[in-house]
Design a protein around this nucleic acid. Sequence first.
DNA 1: GAAAAATGGATTTTT
DNA 2: TCCATTTTTC
Length: 676
Amino acid sequence: MTKKYRLVAPEKPAAAFTIDYRAALNDSQFDVVTTADGPCLVLAGAGSGKTRTLIYRVAYLLEKGVRPEEILLVTFTNKAAEEMKTRVEGLLQMHSKGLWCGTFHHIGNRSLRIYSKALGLGDHFSILDEEDSRDLVKHCVKTVTSSSGGLKFPKPAVVHSVLSFSANSQISITDVIARRYPYLAQFARDFEAIGTLYTEKKRKTNHLDYDDLLLKWIELLDKVPAAKERFTAQFRFCLVDEYQDTNRLQHEIIRRLAERHRNVLVVGDDAQSIYSFRAAQIQNILDFPDIYSDAKIFKLETNYRSTKAILNLANDSIRHNKRQFPKTLASARGSGETPQFVRVRDTGQEAGFVAQKILELRDSGYELSDIAILFRAHYQAAEVELEMAKRGIPYVIRGGIRFFEQAHVKDALSFLKIVANPSDELSWSRALMLQPGIGAGYADKIIDLADAEGDDLKKVCQPAFGSSLPAKVREGLHKFKQVLRPLLTDGVSDHPDTMLEEVLAQGYNKHVLMNFENAQDRLEDLRELINFAHTYKDLKEFLGDVTLREGFKGETLAEGSGEEEVYQPLLLSTIHQAKGLEWRAVFVIGLAEGLFPHAKSMDNEENLEEERRLFYVAVTRAKEELFLVHPMTRYDYQAGTVINRPSMFVEELRSDLYEDVEVEEDNPEERTIYLE
DNA sequence: GAAAAATGGATTTTT
DNA sequence: TCCATTTTTC
């Protein structure tokens, strides 16, 4: 007989703290962590340990005996949510299981799944990603404009962005157009009609787009008393990160959720609000003290990141904004090198300067990964990219196609989506059109036939289904059935990973090999997707998360570096994507009027202030060295070569805060001849 | 249904 | 200029 040994879970002491909060935090951070009950606004300057404070607050609450499911922690991105969870777990040496931590959309999805029936959503709504939404809008555009015979109608992507902005800001479509898209005024009525149709189509096919996850969430709290009762009771503590970038809907959601316990802690920096173009409103954070008249306000103003020289420049810049909570960041570091304002002839010389300087920095002990090149818009990186490749400096450029929006991933998933939600027509047509012989027309016909069968997938898989169709189409349909059939077997549909394996085995594998030149890479992607799927036992949950999660492959590595060793590449990034990160040396390129601030932001004080905040974000990324580069001419596709004035964001600075540098070149003629 | 020609548009981007 | 998308053509 085997001897039994019983493993007992270690007992957690109720209110005995394992963490020495006093030692881990500065005074203001400590205040937040231990006293932030009731409505609280934490104004956290750049580099002031904002994330750290939030994490310790959560740990503190848990140690005080608050149950994990009573804490709601909302973040801006999935990545941030993952980081928070991991760090809380690391602090407490335990699993943070039960914590409601994620993005607004993620938590909305989770809440809606619980009450989908009460909301009349059925038990199987699917989520449309950006591309799906656009496709659906496209259909609607066609329907609406064919009747009115409209020529030169805006692109579906434009229509969708208007609809989405309208939803997120809760401003009517007509008003959104009037305010932000005046040149589309003549289409306002059409847009309204498309909006109505789009909503109707989503309802019919059981789809929610990203915006609906927020809209329906509010509806849930307003119209389903049981849901409201449950969530307002459950979330004793609501914590929101990056509050300056929340939009109207998100603000409304938090207001409702915190209604009962009123422990709402929002953290952010109004000086870093840079997402108004997707309906974020800085007013949410500015008005917080008015909405909660008893709100406590905390300021975190010690900056641990940058030298005094860099911070002085940042402080002097943001001071020009009117709409803000005035703050003065104090550096915890030494005075440091004076930032340099470098004037170069054109973008070619700009690239040359940046490259040479980077090599010098490397020689003086910097790793490439200590350095970043930041820019306002992606296209500004082109020449720098070229130069890096030419000089063999390995680099990574942030952005690129998102993993889960790539064709092959969506193809493979479409079969699973049909199983999860048979009324998902988009996935039907996607999966059907993969088969040779079936085009858009026949896909629609088949979908109608399936609809007539009441979307009974088992019936669809029988040989009799579709027997009236032409031979070629039947052949394709037969193959489609072959893929779908195994997915319906009992036991399989509980395992998204097995389902994906089946899809690959039944022919998609071959399809990838035959249709994509980089087939090997794509198949590897799909293996990765299967690994990810392995952690799920519920199909719908898996599909929801896949759609809501940005890819693990957001970066493209540049090749041709020569060095095969494990190298740490240099980063090229837009300023938006650099938010929250830091480097020892930062180059901000393209600091010219018209580029930065962007020409389209110049006519309006609000936009201009946002551009200045963007500049502020850029310079506060630097820890030790900051280079502001001004290309004095640029090539415009309409006007040819244009003279660039320096950016007003530099001109308005006190001139003792930076050092002027002019670039001399050995052989200015050579380049031109070389290029001709 | 695929290849060739024409057109148009060019901030920022997560979910 | 350069790219992606749409329209046209075979």
